[in-house]
């Protein structure tokens, strides 16, 4: 039921590739990124991600987890490789078609990336900016259905009373709830999350993960998540991808992740005691 709702939603949003909206899987082929010539951060990553469930990417800092996530929606320009999603190579898109692809991919950020001086409501509706003209955005002529949905989402994330408050009045956990709601407002076919809990305390981190897992499961949105907390990854993810040195060194079920894998991913072993 929810899956159908989400699908018709995507179709009604007028995406040109109507025939492809059914599939939400992602296929990365030979993805390479060099910020500095000759020093690749990603070294030919190939990954197939199924169109459902949470895939968690773990690995030490600076190993390119964040770069990988950002290459998918092209916040970072890949140097080489292909990213296939709904019949298109995201790595080759430009201009309008890139924007149309982006609006079907939601993103949650480590630092929430809310517009602090706008109201919570307007931050949520920012998720719909890909669908309305700048003039309408300026005049705040949002689709009433979107506004209604934003109110519903706010209730779901427990911030119903904060709609007209400014985002900078919220706590970290509340901001991330808004961040997630904003991403879900896009009715995405894929959700990317870049260290969504790293700026939060342990208890709030679990709450945020629960919220994200619940909302995406309800709408059948696949999630690619990069996270440094291995316990959280094991608890919420259906699949874990371990990265080290720009390569994938582990790929499997959370239950199969053993200490020697972690040693391989993070190096050393003293920290495991």
């Amino acid at each position: 039921m929810t899956a159908i709702g989400a699908m018709t939603g995507a179709a009604a949003n007028g995406s040109g590739q109507a025939g492809m909206t059914g599939t939400r899987s992602l296929s990365i082929r030979g993805l390479t990124k060099e910020y500095v010539r000759g020093k690749p951060v990603l070294r030919g990553i190939s990954l197939d991600i199924a169109g459902q469930g949470i895939t968690a990417i773990i690995g030490p800092s600076g190993t390119g987890k964040s770069t990988l996530i950002r290459c998918i929606n092209r916040l970072v320009e890949p140097t080489a490789g292909e990213i296939w999603f709904q019949g298109m190579d995201l790595a080759r898109l430009r201009g309008r078609s890139l924007r149309e692809a982006r609006r079907r991919i939601g993103m949650v950020f480590q630092e929430y990336n809310l517009v602090e001086r706008l109201s919570v409501m307007e931050n949520l509706l920012c998720g719909r900016l890909g669908y309305i003209s700048p003039v309408r955005a300026w005049l705040r002529r949002f689709d009433p259905a979107d506004i209604e949905r934003a109110f519903e989402l706010l209730d779901i994330v427990g911030l119903g009373a904060f709609a007209t408050q400014r985002a900078d009045a919220l706590s970290g956990g509340q901001r991330q709830r808004v961040g997630i709601a904003r991403a879900v407002m896009q009715r995405p076919d894929l959700l990317l999350a870049d260290e969504p809990t790293s700026s939060l305390d342990p208890k709030t981190s679990v709450e945020i993960m629960e919220l994200m897992a619940g909302l995406t499961a309800q709408h059948d949105i696949p999630v690619i998540l990069n996270i440094h907390n291995v316990e959280l990854a094991k608890r919420f993810a259906a699949r874990i991808v371990g990265m080290a040195g720009g390569h994938v060194v582990f790929d499997g079920l959370p239950a199969d992740l053993r200490d020697d894998h972690l040693k391989q991913i993070y190096g050393g072993e003293g920290w495991l005691e």
Partner: peptide, 21 residues
């Protein structure tokens, strides 16, 4: 840069990114 990234990632056209981020 954060809000700008977020709105770009949502597929907002350039004028909207400027107006809202």
């Amino acid at each position: 840069r954060g809000p700008v990234e977020a709105l770009t990632a949502a597929g907002a056209p350039w004028p909207s990114v400027f107006l809202k981020a």
